[in-house]
């Protein structure tokens, strides 16, 4: 069981690493939102499911409640993170930021 939890946790860490590096590497802020918003929620899904698995280990009612709460955090983040991303994109569009494009497309 420990091995399974560690593997899931490592998957989550890989997604988090991808999200953090993507925020640094991508060229403009529209494309930065892609890794920032979604690789992070994927990493949250993986690491939270690892924690939920670990919490139910000695089974009891309160442990079950705690792990259901952890799953609820994931559900909440999956509902709200598209809304937050859309709010940021909308602010960018209204402020008049132009999306970055390739040189070849501009000609």
């Amino acid at each position: 069981m420990t091995i399974i939890i560690t593997i899931i946790l490592l998957c989550g860490l890989v997604f988090f690493t991808g999200g953090s590096i993507g925020i640094i590497r991508f060229p403009d802020f529209y494309s930065r939102l892609h890794p920032a918003g979604k690789l992070d929620s994927a990493g949250l899904l993986f690491s939270m499911s690892a924690f939920a698995l670990y919490t139910v280990q000695p089974f009891s009612l309160s442990a079950l409640f705690t792990s259901v709460k952890i799953i609820l955090i994931v559900v909440f983040v999956f509902i709200t993170s598209p809304t937050a991303i859309h709010a940021i994109v909308d602010a960018g569009v209204r402020a008049g930021l132009k999306p970055w494009e390739k040189e070849s497309n501009l000609k």
């Binding site: 802020f29 990493g43 940021i88 930021l97």
Partner: peptide
């Protein structure tokens, strides 16, 4: 808005 993206990413790791 770039700063806002960064703060959002830090928040999701803080959870």
């Amino acid at each position: 808005l770039d700063r806002l993206v960064g703060v959002n990413a830090i928040g999701s790791k803080t959870i």
